[in-house]
Design a protein around this nucleic acid. Structure first.
Length: 242
DNA sequence: TGGTTTGTTGCAGC
DNA sequence: AGCTGCAACAAACC
């Protein structure tokens, strides 16, 4: 059940495995498990929703998709996609996509695109948005090449906060409003992180899966929109369709 | 109860 | 070539 902040949290929770040796690797993921055994974890980080473990010469990428989950130092009943055993402790992933990335992660990822990364670049995001003016806001926010880590909840909540209709064209939005969208995608992600950490995310949702607009007190509209075909929750009164 | 869902990929068809 | 729509995957929730 992952958006960027959830994986960010996972990265923190697994930091103690850095420097440790993988004793055993198994699971139903279609990768060469034998490559992992005996390797030391050099680095653990994430790029958006990608959980990444750098080993010597290659990295393991785990994506929890829509239904994935993980357990640290415990197991679930179901068969794991990837189960890593260390001398002390274990790390298990379920219903996840697992891939090997050759080489160093810095060769594969542009960290400026991760909304929660120190290297996040609002300027780079704005440049990408301006290059695609016909894109509608809901698709733009879910574009991992622009806003890595943003998922459907962050999309809906960000648009509600800045009062932008999900079908607003990026090219039609005033420059300050576009900058606000870029800023809020990051700011909201960090608030999401803290709520998630405390287990109080749901009660802070203003639009996503809600019935009534907390500003206008009228029914929120819900529709599956855009090329991404994800559900949007929005207020037709206070969210502007530029 | 079963429709829905914090996601992505691959492929057919145009 | 590049797009779009659809199926597939898979599991917890209300």
């Amino acid at each position: 059940m992952p958006e960027g902040p959830t994986i960010f949290l996972l990265t923190q929770e697994t930091a103690h495995f850095v420097g440790k040796k993988i004793v055993r690797a198994e699971g139903k993921a279609d990768i060469d498990m034998a490559r992992l055994a005996g390797k030391r974890v050099l680095e653990i980080r994430n790029w958006g929703k990608h959980f990444l473990m750098q080993l010597d010469g290659f990295a393991v990428r785990v994506h929890l998709l829509l239904f994935g989950s993980y357990r640290i130092n415990e197991k679930r009943k179901q068969k794991p996609s990837l189960a890593l055993t260390f001398a002390k402790g274990e790390l298990n992933f379920y219903a996840s996509s697992v891939k090997i990335i050759e080489g160093n992660l810095d060769e594969t990822y542009d960290w400026r695109g991760d909304v929660m990364a120190d290297q996040w670049s609002a300027a780079a995001a704005l440049k990408k948005l301006r290059a695609a003016p016909a894109t509608i806001a809901c698709d733009a926010l879910l574009d991992q090449d622009i806003f890595a880590g943003v998922g459907n909840i962050i999309k809906n909540e960000t648009l509600f906060r800045i009062r932008v209709h999900p079908q607003a064209r990026v090219g039609g939005m005033p420059a300050p409003k576009l900058r606000e969208m870029v800023k809020q995608a990051r700011d909201y992600s960090f608030e999401f992180l803290e709520w998630k950490r405390k287990g109080v995310l749901k009660k802070h949702l203003l639009a996503h899966q809600q019935k009534t607009c907390p500003r206008c007190h009228i029914a929120l509209k819900t529709a599956v929109l855009g090329k991404t075909r994800r559900r949007a929750y929005y207020c037709t009164r206070c969210q502007v369709k530029y």
